[in-house]
Nucleic acid binder design. Structure first.
Lengths: 224, 224
DNA sequence: ACACGGACTGAACGCGCGTATAGACTATTG
DNA sequence: CAATAGTCTATACGCGCGTTCAGTCCGTGT
């Protein structure tokens, strides 16, 4: 009768923890709640993971690994501008909501995942530039960072997006939901046309560039 | 000798709480830690604010009010595209870091503040459109929401920005720091030129628009 | 002078937390 | 069949939490 649930107890506990964190946040996820969700005792949680910190690491690692595999599927499926779009279209269950909750904790595992997302985004964008789908940039890596941060930021602030646009980027199948357009519409508008008009935009960017020069020049100076 | 600290004890406790939350997050901010920071006993914290929840509300309210007054200063100083730029340029102390920490908690006070930031952004952007500095949009409110969320998202994910670009949007005087350009450069690049090239961009947006039509049409259908 | 009320402290309360431990049950192995 | 190893529960421990409370101090009004 393993058809009901053929997963290991250990993995059921881990999944229960991911669900619990995704729904109620890291701070409100206790060993006893996870145990109840998984239908086991609290002691067993520690028995399998050593400590709550160990459980968190296991969850982070599992989520990061799962997201990596989705990314690879997306790579195999052909070039794509937005790495995160693959996650939106795939049925990731509570993974997006989990990510949204742990993105502000400082976990090395999650930090590494974000670094990888940026690196992938940079590579994808470079492919897009070569294919003529994306404009070239004077700072490809910086642009990849900024675009990824914006994507993840929208994920983290999902409650505000839900309230203001009635769109929830953490919900499974977010990319398929037609209401997705309420967020994607303005997004692609900016991505296509930009946002600032000439000549104001050029003037603004010139002053930014000057500030950047200032930031590099003083490095050669002494302490006085 | 009130020159050392002429503030009320109650406001000192509130400020200590804001500092504590800004530095260590909501979950790690306890009554005893706040009391120690303010140099008082834990009991006094509850005496003045009723409960820790009351203290949180007082902090949210104070931060929201302060940010509102900075906004009004910015309005008085003339039109500005980015409402949040006023906060970046002003010396807000730990307020930005506080905001970054509470943006994921669901506090009605913070939610209202975000709503106001969006409304202000929409008004500012409209002024920018009329002044010819900003491109018009087919969805002005949606665009204001998305741009504000991106701004706030960068604030929330400041640890990742710090790690990847060595830029910290929560640090006081962030807008003055020359290293700010590492973030602002790519940002204004996208804001000026956009990101996607034609004709790919137009095709993409057409499919978004179709999805939007689909989202509205089925409302007239029955349950089957 | 004296009563009063707010500011403030220090000790104490109950609670839920992470975790340790002892033991029961079960499957595996020789 | 007996021994072993792993899974799992129930109970308990210590800790830090938010909060309460009794009591002290002190400025003010009468």
């Amino acid at each position: 009768m393993r058809s009901v649930d053929d997963r290991t107890t250990k993995s059921r506990i881990r999944d229960a923890a991911i669900t619990c964190i995704a729904e109620h946040g890291v701070a409100d996820t206790t060993a006893r709640k996870v145990a109840a969700e998984a239908g086991v005792s609290a002691g067993l949680v520690i028995h399998h993971f050593g400590s709550m910190e160990g459980l968190r690491e296991a969850c982070d690692h599992f989520v990061a690994t799962t997201i990596r595999s989705y990314k690879e599927d997306a790579i195999a499926g052909g070039p794509n501008i937005d790495v995160l779009a693959a996650l939106r279209n795939a049925d990731v269950g509570p993974l997006a909501a989990y990510l949204a909750e742990v993105l502000n904790e400082d976990s090395p595992t999650v930090a590494r995942l974000v670094d990888e997302l940026v690196a992938d985004a940079e590579a994808y964008i470079e492919q897009g530039v070569e294919a003529g789908m994306v404009l070239p940039s004077s700072d490809p890596r910086g642009r990849a960072v900024v675009l990824t941060i914006w994507s993840l930021g929208a994920l983290v602030l999902h409650r505000h997006l839900k309230r203001m646009l009635d769109v929830d980027p953490t919900s499974p199948g977010f990319g398929k939901d037609p209401s997705f357009a309420a967020y994607a519409g303005p997004l692609y508008e900016v991505y296509t046309d930009g946002f600032l008009a000439e000549p104001f935009a050029t003037n603004l960017r010139r002053s930014i560039a000057e500030a950047q020069d200032l930031a590099q020049a003083p490095e050669n100076e002494g302490t006085s």
